[in-house]
Design a protein around this nucleic acid. Sequence first.
DNA 1: CCTTTTTTGTAAAGGTTATGTAAAGGCTGA
DNA 2: TCAGCCTTTACATAACCTTTACAAAAAAGG
Lengths: 240, 240
Amino acid sequence: MTESYDKTRVLIIDDDPKLCRLVKDYLDPMGYDVESAGTGPAGLEKALAGDFQAVILDVMLPGMDGFEVLRRIRQSSTVPVLMLTALGDESDRIVGLEIGADDYLPKTFSTRELLARLRAVTRRSNMTQSQKAENDDEIAIGELRINPASRQAIEGGQILSLTPVEFDLLVTLARSADRVMSRDRLLDEISGRDYEVFDRSIDVHISSLRRKLNDDPKNPRYIKTVRSAGYMLISRPEEA
Amino acid sequence: MTESYDKTRVLIIDDDPKLCRLVKDYLDPMGYDVESAGTGPAGLEKALAGDFQAVILDVMLPGMDGFEVLRRIRQSSTVPVLMLTALGDESDRIVGLEIGADDYLPKTFSTRELLARLRAVTRRSNMTQSQKAENDDEIAIGELRINPASRQAIEGGQILSLTPVEFDLLVTLARSADRVMSRDRLLDEISGRDYEVFDRSIDVHISSLRRKLNDDPKNPRYIKTVRSAGYMLISRPEEA
DNA sequence: CCTTTTTTGTAAAGGTTATGTAAAGGCTGA
DNA sequence: TCAGCCTTTACATAACCTTTACAAAAAAGG
């Protein structure tokens, strides 16, 4: 095993080795873990076996064509699939078979586009997983009021100017007030990333959140550190 | 009873079982409850009997064609109907529009499109009567007055000369004042398109709207940018 | 107690992404 | 054809997120 398991795993199924190489060379340095398959059956097998966060699938494949592969993938998997279609070649698409892909990518895609669509597709599937409850009700905790609809938080009458991640972090903590949230969990909620042991970004965000909340780590009114476990937003600030 | 009551119920009417399966396989895990019908008459019966939040209807059906099915559905139901048309077949669209289709999907749709349109269509039909009545009342926000009936907007006594899209954008923002509207949502409301990763047109419209409103992005009286989330029209311009 | 190890707090740097907007391109209806 | 409008493109800039580094605190172990 040469790859660490936390990367976004992408499978490309295409009979053109050059294209596979191209995609791999481009995505690898961006932190993706790219595998490839040159035929439909091989691709299908890999797609169903290895767990990938996304599959890039050429429509035209020798043996089993892309749509057939897609159909079989869909029989037992909901992995996001990006179909590679020939540019402008819309007329030869087989009516009725072409659904089930999450998005399409023209064969002449730019790397920028590839990356953007990959991200979009993986983000979407992460979102449906947690099935966003979309609760827009205001959350009140002590002097703190959080309004998801306007993405505003007010503490002691002052509007806090929070960055996107800080706001999400605060909402996440608030929705699980008085329960410890692991860094792992927090990171997943706010950015969908996986937590690594050396990842300190949550800590950094917590730090700046505290500064904006005027909160002291040693004697927290809001965010309490739970050593070796995570952070917790406390609903009733008690005096120590 | 196998299904929980709160899922969005979708009926697909298509003679291609593969397509029905694909839609079902894809939508089920996303929290939809999909039923299918293989013929016009069967579909019609189901559409009128079971209560669905949306119907996906193929234009080409053996026996009774899609338009006929749609016409009969419309005789006693206002359920949102998405027509499946062959790609680029403009005349189909025109016919369908007249009969009362709610939206179209090219047969080569991606699930991204499918999901976007399903959401749009169910959102629209979920609106309460008063919301749906397209409230033509004037909206007043600060120095700004918007009159949907005459499609005029006045700011500080001056009539703004807005383009159609700018006006719709302003109305949409105003009707959800103090709530962040995503670009996704805005784009859908004003043009029915679905948002692509590279789409900047909302930003551009916002920019020119701001110019006409004499609004400064950095210190907005009206339209506030909510980074990574969208835009928000603020009803009570606060001092910074 | 004292030392070592683990964990956390936070400043600063560096790279990345989102946004504002001008300009170009393209579509549509007169 | 032209005029008006919408979208796309392109680039500058600002805001942001993560990483790194180091200090401090807490726990563990003696």
